[in-house]
Nucleic acid binder design. Sequence first.
DNA 1: TCATTATTGAAACAGTCGTACCATAAACTC
DNA 2: GAGTTTATGGTACGACTGTTTCAATAATGA
Lengths: 186, 186
Amino acid sequence: MGRPADPARRERTLAQATDYVLAHGLAGLSLRPLAAALDTSPRMLLYDFGSKQELVAAVLAEARRRGAVRMAEHLPPRTGSVRERLRGIWTWISADERAPFVRLFFEVHADGLVHPENYPDQGAAITDWFDTLGTTFRDVSSGPDDTVTPTLVMAVVRGLLFDLTTTGDRDRTDRALDRFAELLDR
Amino acid sequence: MGRPADPARRERTLAQATDYVLAHGLAGLSLRPLAAALDTSPRMLLYDFGSKQELVAAVLAEARRRGAVRMAEHLPPRTGSVRERLRGIWTWISADERAPFVRLFFEVHADGLVHPENYPDQGAAITDWFDTLGTTFRDVSSGPDDTVTPTLVMAVVRGLLFDLTTTGDRDRTDRALDRFAELLDR
DNA sequence: TCATTATTGAAACAGTCGTACCATAAACTC
DNA sequence: GAGTTTATGGTACGACTGTTTCAATAATGA
């Protein structure tokens, strides 16, 4: 008996909060402006999530989930040359539409360096990408459990993303990726 | 006439503040704890630097200056094979002693992504490294003004640093760098 | 001694932060 | 209607933020 719970509200709020964090970043996140933008109140945010920390954790999980879905949708299996696949990944991840994700990704990493205690799942986001990219680049790997090749590929991608987001120089970063693809292909 | 000014105090405070920021990070920096750790007062910090923003700018400039000095001290010129030089750079930059610098580096980058207006010298830290690394890897470049090779090298280094700081897996990142050096050497 | 300039302390100001408390309204079963 | 559970609004608390204000001290030259 009693008034029935409405679990949809929490999910709706979570989706909106994730949008907000993707748009405004994590660092300066504050309950009152967030609540105002979501047309709710700090009171309700705490009612639904318990604390700001748990809200942030839920938002990050949701963002990661979205990213994984988008990535799974996009990544074609292992068709084409190494260069084509690598370029496909780069074109997709470096597109402007992915910028909020990339930004949040770097932001979480930086925060994790200062407060490792808040991120017990050490590098889950990275090893996740490994698994999917490991299968994508299996044929250029030296063995079935070769972790070096995906490590290097991801390092190039992240490093060039770092460069691109800082300098905005798309030509140079694009060409650097092509150069790397050449090296891998030989 | 009147009491003479003491410019050494500001420099001393700046050096200590830089130590503090390198140790504690930029994100949560607050005047009162900083002043307490430096055995001074928020009043004096503002007296010497005008505002927190200017203090932070001064600290970042000082940190960058220190990093440049350390880098210039270390980098041997273009002796040895590409692989040896690349490994030398990686060994140096990924050493534990450099961790505070690397952390601050990533922190500033992430903050710059959210607040680009605070960093008008867009990517100065990155292009700085380019110039020095461009000369170091001149012989593997295709031409005198080849920007692609240093871009790729720095991307690998930064990407692997990202990985190492997140996962702590030194073996895997070391081997990934060796793999890259092999690719470059052929 | 005294004027002058540099330095420093203590306190307060106006604001924001996350969160807790208390009441009230809404939606349901009986 | 009562009883019960969920959902809200309003408000205030204590702690923190960067910064300002006012006063006091210290060190110099005249």
